[in-house]
Nucleic acid binder design. Structure first.
Length: 395
DNA sequence: AAATTTTCCAACCGCTGTCTT
DNA sequence: CAAGACAGCGGTTGGAAAATT
């Protein structure tokens, strides 16, 4: 049984379409509309199979199709989407209005892939070739293990006249952005991180001062939620740059900020005090220290607190904006790949009863679920229409 | 200038998924 | 439920154009 082949008839023409054939097809569709491809060739007077007609119409004759003239923004978008989605050209094309999957596929194979190769950047991972130990374990950007494309860095990080990837940098902004979003997705769901992060900020600021509040003009990527007031690129962070760099450096190993808790000044100690007097990271109850920390930030921030839907968003937003350009991101990446269990986000089949240890914090199955869901949600987000909630992005 | 090689991309092929009968 | 119809998708190919020898 099964289906009959679509184009089995003998004597049908193949190969390039002539102008006359195009006109016949256009005229017929304008009069009768799309559809009925099997019977269309005969009715339209074409010696083609219906499938060929549909393809010709969809890829070349359909009104509104944009052909050629890929801009640097297009390039960057395609590269980032390909890093996240792999060879899923149709999904990529949905994010480039008026472009067809076939053209994007051809453009990738003919231009972008080679360009990345000449820059010694792995077209699949978008990381510099040979810089990541154990690279054999890296994913292949296929459907099952694609990383979530939660971050876009175009407007904030790209040079005016050249696409970001043509910069003579050894690191891919996109790769960093992807990782940061992955981290952000995970970190956001770990409520214990909020007080930790807030304490970090306060400690850093108490030791360095709050800076002059000048906005950081460079590397100004920002994570925010589309639903919040920070849509688009009107986000800016204002914390002193060097303070952020210091904070970021402490996160070379994520969550090693636990160590910082032990060195907090007495007036902040209460933020991490649990009932037994020890440090509690899993029972997030204390909010005042977070508010305090953020209020300090607000004194110097140009973006109002109301721009963010949660305190963790705000902290992450600020942190990510500086982390994006740091070498430590790759180290975090490596660290992440060495984690046991599904927190690596490579496959939903690895959900087991294993317990991963993130430094001193045990992550059980429940937390795994919390951590994994935003990753998969954001992956889904890219495949469908952007939803006005949840996914992070860097405008 | 001619021959050869490489590049590019329109079109094809084969498969899967969904809807209809 | 089975099977047909066809839309959609990703991989591949063939030939024209461009580049190189």
């Amino acid at each position: 049984m099964g289906r009959t082949p679509f184009c089995t008839a003998e004597g049908l023409k193949k190969g390039p379409w002539t102008a006359e054939e195009d006109q016949k097809l256009i005229a017929y569709i304008q009069k009768h509309g799309e559809g009925g491809w099997r019977s269309l060739p005969e009715k339209a007077g074409l010696q083609r199979c219906g499938k060929s007609c549909r393809l010709r119409w969809a890829n070349y004759l359909r009104p509104g199709i944009k052909r050629g003239d890929f801009t640097s923004e297009d390039d960057q978008t395609i590269i980032e989407l390909h890093a996240a989605l792999g060879n899923r050209w149709a999904a990529i094309a949905r994010h480039l209005p008026k472009r067809t999957d076939n053209e994007i596929k051809n453009y990738w194979n003919a231009h972008l892939k080679k360009r990345l190769a000449t820059m010694s950047i792995d077209p699949v991972t978008q990381k510099p070739v040979g810089t990541t130990p154990g690279s054999s374990s890296r994913n292949s950007s296929t459907m099952g293990n694609a990383e979530p494309p939660m971050v876009h860095t175009e407007s904030a990080t790209k040079q005016e006249s050249e696409p970001t990837l043509q910069q003579p940098t050894s690191r891919s902004t996109s790769a960093s952005a992807l990782l940061l979003n992955k981290l952000a997705s995970r970190v956001t769901t770990l409520q214990c991180v909020d007080p930790l992060r807030a304490c970090q900020i306060m400690q850093s600021m108490s030791s360095k001062g709050t800076g002059d509040g000048g906005a950081t003009a460079n590397n100004e990527s920002a994570i925010c939620r589309p639903t919040s007031n920070c849509q688009g690129n009107n986000i800016s962070t204002a914390l002193d740059t060097s303070a952020w760099l210091d904070i970021a450096e402490t996160l070379t190993t994520p969550l090693n900020c636990l160590d910082l808790l032990e060195t907090l000044p007495p007036e902040l100690a209460e933020c991490n005090a649990s009932d037994d007097g020890g440090v509690s990271v899993d029972n997030y109850r204390i909010e005042d220290p977070v508010s305090d920390a953020l209020s300090i930030l607000d004194k110097n921030a140009s973006a109002p607190a109301s721009s963010f839907s949660s305190t963790s968003d705000r902290v992450l937003n600020n942190m990510a904006s500086k982390l994006a350009s740091l070498p430590c991101v790759d180290e975090i990446h490596d660290w992440q790949h060495n984690l046991p269990g599904p927190i690596q986000g490579d496959s939903d089949t690895t959900t087991t009863g294993d317990v991963a240890i993130l430094d001193d914090i045990s992550i059980d199955d429940t937390t795994y679920d919390m951590v994994g869901s935003p990753i998969f949600y954001n992956l889904n987000y890219l495949e469908n229409e952007p939803e006005p909630s949840d996914p992070f992005y860097i405008p």
